[in-house]
Every structure is written in C-alpha cells, then in structure tokens.
Amino acid sequence: MARFSEKVALVTGSSSGIGKATAILLARQGCKVTITGRNTDRLEAVKREILKNGSSENDVLVIPADLIDESEQDKLIEETITEFGQLDILVNSVGGAIMDKEGKTGVMQGMDVFDKNIQLHLRSVVMMTKKAIPHLMKTKGEVVSVSAIGADHHGNPQFLYDSMPKAALNQFTRSAAVELIRHGIRVNSVSPGFVNTGFFMMDFMSSRKECIPYGAVAQPDQIVQVIAFLADRKMSSYIIGQSIVVDGGSSLIMGMEAHDMQELMGL
C-alpha cells in the first residue's frame, strides 16, 4: 500500500514552487489532492504531471482561488469535502514576493506591502486552518505550513514585511499545536532557506559559504520530503508544534565564521 493511500490533502499555493512539488509527491505516494492557485494554466500543468505519475482523474481536484478572499477559502474546503468526502492533510504553502511599487525595501516600503504580506502569508493560513479544523478532527489529521528562516532570531531588513508574518506564523504553529492536539490534530511547519523557485540570486548564494554552507540552493523536492515526513503520522507522530529548518546550514552562520580565521589572523 502506498504511503498516503486513503488520504486526502489540500495543498495551497500548488501551482508552482514548493506547493507544486508537495502536491506531486503526495499524489505519487497515493494521496488524493486538491491543488489550488490563481493561475489556471499552471494548475492544469501540475494536474497533467500528477496524472503522468499514475494518479487517476478522480484523485485530483483543481480549484483556482485567491486565498486572500474568504469566500474562496470556503470554496476550497467545501469542494474538497464534496469531491473526496474527507480531509486528512492541509498544507499551507501559499506565498509569493510582494514588491513595493516604488522599489523601496525594509521599513521604507509602503504599508500596502505590509498589509498584503499579512493577508497572504499569515491571515490566509490562519483562516484555512480554522476552516479545516472540523474536518481534520474527524480524520485526526495534519496541518503543515511553510514558513521561512527569515522568521528566526536574526534581522531581515531588506525583506522585513515578508519575514514578519512568517515569525507570527511560527507562533501560530506552536500555539495551535498545543490546542489542537487535544482533538487529535497535529500542527507543524517547515522553514526553508534559499530554494530554487526562480530566485534571481541563486548562483551568488550557492558560491558563498556565508550564505549557504551546503554549497547549493535547495531544490523544492528537498523541502517537500520534510513536509511529507510531517504529514505522515506513522513517521512523525511525536512531533508537535515544531518548525523544522531546512536551509543547508544558512541559519547557523555568523559572518565571521564564513572565513578562514587562521588566514585572517596570519597563522
């Protein structure tokens, strides 16, 4: 029997990047999946790839949606339950870069950038989780959210408004996990570092050990394996409310540690 046979997953942000790779992996391992995003053409391409890997048409549900819109959040949950009869796994992977119209960064960005980041990267995750709870209680299900290492204990001045909701998401993960485990629902998250999802500085980051000690930007599949691990109760049943860092060592490095101290000291 496949790893996720008889399971149903709803994966937000699954038209590209980590969400896409998550939906493909879960489906390949027997899961029925609802895929969603704003780009219909990309969603249909993801569906074709899932079907190519052996899933049937009846095991993939495509629902274009904007997760900032609460009525479309409701639609996602309701149509998943109508189609599949249950929900076992919610993967909150929705996200995207929100740029200031004037090219400003950090604190100088417009408050519209702040508001959009909060709505997309935090509020939508909280709302989707809340709306999934009644169904996940029935299946003793799992919630896995995608956070980022920018949420951790160091400054992220250039992408301040992007990292703030991720920091709040980590607190939501911890607190919701303590509350919901009483109902049999596990809540965890994954904090990726630099991932090959079209980021324009990949070569620069890969070549500098102060950025990525591992020496390479992660591929989405390397993040997805951890998401699948957290979604698999047999493999991770005792992990509650954690945000697992998957960053090739990026969050471990202080600037000075990236250099040869003996060389700097003339030894």
Rank of each mutant, 00 (worst) to 15 (best):
M1H: 10
F4K: 01
E6H: 14
A9W: 01
L10C: 06
T12W: 07
S16D: 11
A21K: 06
I24V: 14
L26H: 03
G30W: 01
C31E: 00
V33L: 02
V33I: 03
T34F: 01
I35D: 00
T36E: 02
G37K: 08
R38I: 02
N39S: 10
T40G: 10
D41Y: 11
K52C: 05
N53G: 13
N53V: 08
S55P: 04
S56K: 00
L61W: 00
A65R: 04
E72Q: 15
E78L: 13
I89N: 01
I89G: 00
L90G: 03
L90S: 05
A97R: 12
I98Q: 04
K104R: 15
Q109R: 12
G110L: 07
V113L: 09
I118E: 03
Q119P: 04
L120K: 06
M128N: 09
M128F: 09
I133V: 15
P134E: 06
H135I: 09
V143F: 04
V143N: 02
S145E: 01
S145C: 08
A148V: 11
I149F: 08
I149M: 09
H153P: 05
F159N: 15
D162N: 12
L169K: 03
L169R: 02
L169D: 01
L169G: 02
R174A: 10
A176F: 14
E179M: 12
E179N: 12
L180R: 05
L180G: 03
R182Q: 13
R186E: 07
N188A: 07
N188L: 08
V190H: 08
V190P: 05
V190T: 05
G193E: 00
D203P: 06
S206L: 00
K209R: 15
G215R: 09
V217R: 03
P220Q: 05
Q222D: 12
I223K: 02
F229L: 14
D232C: 05
R233N: 10
R233W: 09
Y238R: 12
I239P: 02
S243Q: 07
V246R: 04
G248C: 06
G248L: 04
L252D: 11
I253T: 12
M254F: 14
G255T: 14
E257I: 09
Q262W: 11
Q262G: 12
G266W: 11
